[in-house]
């Protein structure tokens, strides 16, 4: 198998999943609307007072990002599992890890990327200081791919189950904690006008680790789930 055909397989899966996502647009839109609604619940539940909202903003945005990612995760493998496409992928002579990486990349492009683009707006709603905006974008850019990669493992493990939804969040959310800690702390630190290099390095390290190991675990989990 040449590198060119590997890359071609990766691109095909990526393009296929993007086409599918664009043809069922509500699947992209719904988690985003959820993201906005969850964030806007906090001023109503806690207090509209700007000082308080400013301090909780990083955490609120990140928790909402985690939850809305959870909602979109199932779409990575669910419909492909049901109509047999996943079987075909497992029977492709190309390594499953490459195909998984293609699918996860597509998932991130339709769920993570719009989240990043929307986040400054939500920052404004929660009175996040302007200095913290670059940190918000940077942590989301580094963190959301990790969420997609780790989430894919959880979906792969639960895809064969009829009611996998709640179980999926039980499996995946604890694994999201490190990303949550470093990302929301980075934003808060940036708001206090301090350097956030350390946090970003850590997020980048987690990204590197996830991108190398998660596709392996996902491919193994898919093989098990499809038995």
């Amino acid at each position: 198998m040449t590198n060119a055909s590997l890359f071609n397989a990766f691109l095909t899966v990526l393009k296929r999943d993007l086409t599918l996502a664009l043809r069922t647009r509500s699947e992209i839109a719904n988690p985003l609307i959820f993201f906005i609604i969850v964030v806007s619940l906090f001023p109503l539940a806690v207090s509209p007072e700007s000082g308080l909202l400013r301090t909780v903003a990083p955490g609120v945005i990140w928790v909402a990002a985690l939850l809305s990612t959870m909602l979109s995760l199932d779409s990575i493998f669910r419909s492909d599992f049901e109509d047999g496409s996943l079987e075909q992928m497992l029977l492709s002579p190309h390594p499953m890890t490459v195909l998984v990486l293609g699918k996860v990349t597509a998932h991130w492009l339709v769920s993570g990327l719009p989240l990043i683009l929307l986040s400054p707006l939500l920052g404004v709603l929660l009175f996040l200081p302007f200095e913290a905006m670059p940190a918000l974008l940077a942590t989301l850019a580094l963190g959301t791919p990790v969420l997609s990669l780790i989430g894919a493992i959880g979906v792969a493990l639960t895809v064969g189950l009829r009611r996998g939804g709640v179980l999926l969040s039980l499996l995946v959310l604890p694994l999201y904690i490190p990303v949550l800690i470093f990302a929301s702390n980075a934003i808060a630190t940036a708001a206090a006008d301090l350097s956030i290099k350390g946090q970003l390095y850590f997020l980048a390290a987690m990204f590197a680790l996830a991108v190398t190991l998660a596709p392996l675990a996902t491919a193994a989990a898919l093989r098990i789930s499809l038995r």
């Binding site: 198998m1 055909s5 071609n8 397989a9 095909t12 899966v13 296929r16 086409t19 599918l20 043809r23 069922t24 492909d80 049901e82 109509d83 047999g84 496409s85 996943l86 079987e87 075909q88 992928m89 492709s92 002579p93 190309h94 195909l99």
Partner: peptide, 24 residues
């Protein structure tokens, strides 16, 4: 298989194009 892996959202041509790229 029973579930034959044809995507409803894609046209027959697109479906075949994906299979083609997946094959050796």
């Amino acid at each position: 298989g029973h579930a034959h892996g044809v995507k409803g959202e894609l046209t027959p041509l697109e479906n075949l194009r994906v299979s083609q790229a997946m094959a050796a």
